[in-house]
Structure formats: structure tokens, C-alpha cells
């Protein structure tokens, strides 16, 4: 089972501005051990994905997306249209074809 892990990454509510204004992407993740040789676990977790996004997609101002090892306050992370808190947040193990969405909350009116 060394096939690459395909996940859909989506941004909205303004979070896409940090990613070349592209709202939907499909990415293929290599085997985790290949990408992070020192990693203690085998499967991709969301926390690994955040680092991958920072290294590969995030061009400017990482502080507007990340804080510590998680996302900054005001960004809601959704795993297949459900709040990531329902799935263990950072420790959720990515599955083939998952859709991970990062939505910045809006405040205008």
C-alpha cells in the first residue's frame, strides 16, 4: 500500500488569499516516511499535513494561517464537511480522497 495519498484541500472565507487565491486543490502526498524520515508514526495525520502545506503551498505570512503547531484562531478546519474537533483535530489520520477544508470566519455585514 505504497500508493500516494490523494486529498482535496480547500480554502474559503479569505484563507485562499494566502494560497494564490486558489480555493480548491487536489494533492498527492508521498509515503509519510519518505517525506519525514524522522517521523514516529506511519500514516499521515492532519498535523503532518499542516507542515506539508506550510512547506509546499504557503508562500507568505505563515502567521496568518498557523499558530504554534495548529491553525490560527478564526480558521475552522473541516474534515469531509464536519468540524475537525469531532475527529480528534491534529491527530486525525488522513484517508484516501478526504476533503480537508480551511474556512476563515467572516465578520462583515
Amino acid at each position: 500500500t505504497m500508493e500516494p495519498l490523494k486529498v482535496h484541500i480547500q480554502f474559503g472565507g479569505g484563507a485562499e488569499l494566502l494560497f494564490d487565491k486558489i480555493k480548491r486543490r487536489e494533492v498527492e502526498l508521498p509515503a509519510l516516511k519518505k517525506y519525514y524520515p524522522d517521523c514516529k508514526h506511519e500514516k499521515w495525520l492532519i498535523k503532518d499535513l499542516l507542515v506539508w502545506i506550510k512547506d509546499n503551498l504557503l508562500k507568505e505570512r505563515p502567521e496568518l494561517f498557523l499558530q504554534g503547531d495548529s491553525v490560527r484562531p478564526g480558521i475552522l478546519v473541516l474534515i469531509n464537511d464536519a468540524d475537525w474537533e469531532l475527529y480528534g483535530e491534529l491527530d486525525y489520520e488522513l484517508q484516501q480522497n478526504d476533503t480537508i477544508m480551511f474556512i476563515s470566519t467572516l465578520h462583515g455585514g
Binding site: 470566519t105 467572516l106 465578520h107
Partner: peptide, 12 residues
């Protein structure tokens, strides 16, 4: 859902 307010520079 949002225990902490967002950083001011991230608000449009």
C-alpha cells in the same frame, strides 16, 4: 466554536 478571537490583521 471560536474560543479565541482571530488576530486583527486577519480580519477583513
Amino acid at each position: 466554536v471560536f474560543p479565541t478571537p482571530p488576530p486583527p490583521e486577519a480580519v477583513g
